[in-house]
Amino acid sequence: MDITTKGVSIKLSGKEIVHEASIRVRGGQMVGLFGPNGSGKSTLLKSIYRVLKPQAGEILFDDIPLEQIPRQETAKKLAVVTQFTTLNFEFKVSEIVLMGRSPHKKLLDKDTPEDFRIVRECLEKVNMLGLSDRKFSTLSGGEKQRVLLARALAQETSVLVLDEPTNHLDIKYQLQTMEIIRNLNKGVLLALHDLNMAFRYCDYVFIMKDGRVEAHGKPEDIIDEALIRNVYEVESRIYENPVTHLPSIAFLP
């Protein structure tokens, strides 16, 4: 499935956070959304997963405008992993992942053995199967994040949206998560902080600054020192990493 935004502008509390942003995620692509804090990445993503409504522009899933798609349908096409939040209510890990199946359920449907199988598989993929009976609130930050990823996977959508999914993770889990995501064969749109990740994981990137899309293209094509200076306001040097043989960015103080 393709996701397209055309000239989307979003205001929050009267202030325009995103200004005429146009991005595109083609089916099966892994697309990165980068930019410094406050550049509007999260806000733009929120409009895509329908938590915010844009004041201008349109958002299309496969050429169908988002308003025309019922909410439950959206949840079958798009799954989202955000920063975990503290829940006011207690649930087990398995219960939370099981809820990922609900977009596919009608009102009075029961949970089927198929659902349970999918939940097990998804927990396995994120290495949380052993903790499936634990209460969510007793998990560490990284563990919680992985559970949310499992839930998103259980939704069995063709596109995944992630808003800084690796922020609170230990390096081991950061890498693990990114590998899981890469091997998914789904379209992925993820907002990331670490520009270095772009080279390893993204087929395409959009760079945002002050609510606008500053540049977009293949990472190796468009990420250069001039862009970094312009968007992140720091000096840098891009070199070929002798170990990974991928471009790496060295930020200069």
Binding site: R50, V51, T74, A75, L78, T85, F91, I96, L108, Q155
Partner: peptide, 20 residues
Amino acid sequence: TQVRRINIMLLGDEAATTLG
């Protein structure tokens, strides 16, 4: 008939929205 939806509501506003 709403219990499934209510469970999802408890996950938080954003999560519930993303689950449809």
